[in-house]
Design a protein around this nucleic acid. Structure first.
Lengths: 352, 352
DNA sequence: GGGAAAAGTTTGATCGATCAAATTCTGAGT
DNA sequence: ACTCAGAATTTGATCGATCAAACTTTTCCC
């Protein structure tokens, strides 16, 4: 295999200097038309491609975004991060950026990995997922002036947001609220909610969406709410409890597809194949079994993250201060995906 | 933020030359003990970390493995690639390698992306997944002498294997065979199989495992096999068909968890909550609903891929010829994960 | 046509590390 | 003490690109 061609080779063939070749690639507008054509021809002829590491060394930019691949994907919803990752990679590529993976078992290990990648000048910016209250990673990144953006809000600091924290999130509250209203509009009288124990930002937010939707219509939420850890079995148990209670619900909204699948099983088990159930995340499983679900606009989240990091059209990470005028976050609306969530069995169309 | 320290800075503090610092990092054994200690102290003091791009430029190695993130994860089984990716990233890290993602819509686009990353010296080796008959990507990589390994066999060339194609795969046939024997040992008389239309390497392989297990016991496989495209709905329909046929099966093995979930639903719908069903891939969904499933040793696959690419202990990609003595592939055995696949509802333990 | 500004192109230095070769240091053997 | 091999360390060159500044050519206007 012959040595890969360099700028020097291209320059020789095109009969210009190194720098002109470089200019054709990086600031084509300052090169005379005729020259540019000649250089491009030479590039094509030789199959030249700039050496990424050389460029990075000189420019002190890696054009790389680091993201942690979570250790154990939380079951059914694992596909959310997956889809997000795909969207991020694809859109980053269009902006000339790459996505580098790393793993870490906990927040401390993640910080250590981030430090390694940053110190090695391997990565220009980081994308964090699953933010929590008092997120140690966020604090560290801000303190150390490392560019980053999160998929997830800085829960708990709504009243005093830090403009150095760039984030994109999906408005779960609005999504659940919409789903609840949709069920009420469809004739439901008692819409129950199966959520998670309070304490998680996203969980509390979604719960609030349901509560508010009921209040809006002057309905009491009283005993229609059950909080359990996220699992199919728990979802099933919760639904069984609700369905056997005095005020039997005629529709259920869940904080996740996992819970919704459990609820679906419970309902079908007692013959309530028609009980409307809506999950959250629009996972492949929901699609496969025909569950309605609230879908997060993951492409939009990826686009938002990149916009915050790179600017509307830029292709390199901006330093803080370059954009003090612009908003530092983005809250996107989810979308309700309706399926015939009446029967568990589906026609051919719903298959994966 | 102060400028990051360089070898030069470390050298000055430790009172040695650049090269000695470099040696401490790359061939510590040739540096005198006392000097090494002094240099390491200086490194610690300054928090020095080698500049990845500079090193790559000089060594002409990127220490990076490229892998394509598949476009639409095929429903429920998407988690397989995901888990593999996690294992690969983690183990690569231990070997000083990084994992870079890219996306592509089809094989041609994937080749183009590979070419870009290779030409830019961004990636030393590639890992391909989901190999098919006559895989164009594999042919291109071999022809262009790009280091790579695949998760998946070179289907169709068993009789004339190309030693330049490094691969790791899981023995689906053995897995399905084991599952089938297990059911027969448990007292089943008629074990059915729901698989995919013939034509896919993995699918045909798994099907064969079932057939052979029956033949081994002198049983006829006759009408106990249904082939459908992979979807929950199809799995359900296939199971319904089998269960209403003359020779009603008393256990079912499926080519995927997706099909198995469908089969489970069909069985439960007609009251056969106890019908044993075994899926394939051991996805979070199988875990969540308590389905038995054949689990692929993904950590092992990741380890195998790295071993083939880097050698047993190496930490950089080997060129062909360096290892003509060693085997060029690895076939790993899957493991049957048993769950109480009798009822769809499960106790707390199975919840995810 | 003269001269200055603008446009286009080239040259030399540099990013931070490692390689290859040269140099200095050490210790064993006589 | 003296030599010399081998160990330990240093020096100069280099990887392939871009930056900054210098240089050359073109354009424009009076």
């Amino acid at each position: 295999m012959a040595q890969l061609p360099t700028v020097e080779d291209v320059a020789r063939v095109a009969n210009v200097s190194r720098q002109t070749v470089s200019n054709v690639l990086n600031s084509p507008e300052i090169v005379k038309e005729a020259t540019r054509t000649r250089v491009l021809a030479a590039i094509g002829e030789l199959g030249y491609r700039p050496h990424a590491s050389a460029r990075r060394l000189r420019t002190q930019k890696s054009s790389t975004i680091g993201i942690r691949l979570e250790p154990v994907r939380n079951g059914i919803s694992g596909s959310v991060l997956d889809t997000f990752l795909h969207a991020l990679t694809e859109q980053a590529d269009r902006r000339g950026m790459r996505v580098l993976l790393f793993t870490a078992d906990d927040a401390a290990a993640e910080i250590e990995q981030i430090r390694r990648l940053r110190d090695g000048a391997d990565v220009d910016a980081f994308v964090l997922t699953s933010t929590s209250y008092q997120d140690a990673r966020v604090e560290w990144l801000i303190e150390n002036n490392v560019p980053f953006a999160t998929f997830g809000r800085p829960w708990g600091t709504e009243d005093n947001p830090d403009p150095r924290h760039l984030w994109v999130d999906v408005d779960g509250r609005a999504g659940v609220s919409e789903a609840t209203r949709h069920l009420l509009d469809g004739g439901a009288q008692a819409v129950a909610y199966i959520g998670w124990p309070s304490g998680s930002g996203a969980g509390d937010d979604r719960h609030r969406g349901w509560r508010e939707a009921l209040e809006e219509r002057g309905l009491a939420s009283g005993d229609l709410h059950v909080a359990v850890e996220d699992s199919v079995a728990n979802g099933r148990a919760a639904a069984e409890q609700l369905l056997s209670s005095a005020r039997r619900p005629d529709a259920i909204v869940c904080a996740s597809d996992t819970l919704a699948l459990g609820a679906r099983l419970a309902a079908s088990a007692v013959g309530l194949d028609d009980l409307p159930i809506i999950g959250f995340d629009n996972t492949p499983v929901a699609e496969a079994v025909g569950l309605s679900s609230i879908s997060q606009p993951l492409e939009g989240v990826a686009a938002g993250v990149l916009e915050l990091l790179l600017g509307p059209t830029g292709n390199s990470v901006r330093t803080r201060g370059e954009f003090s005028e612009e908003p530092t976050n983005r809250l996107l609306a989810p979308r309700l995906v309706e399926r015939r969530s009446t029967h568990l069995a589906l026609d051919e169309n719903t298959g994966l």
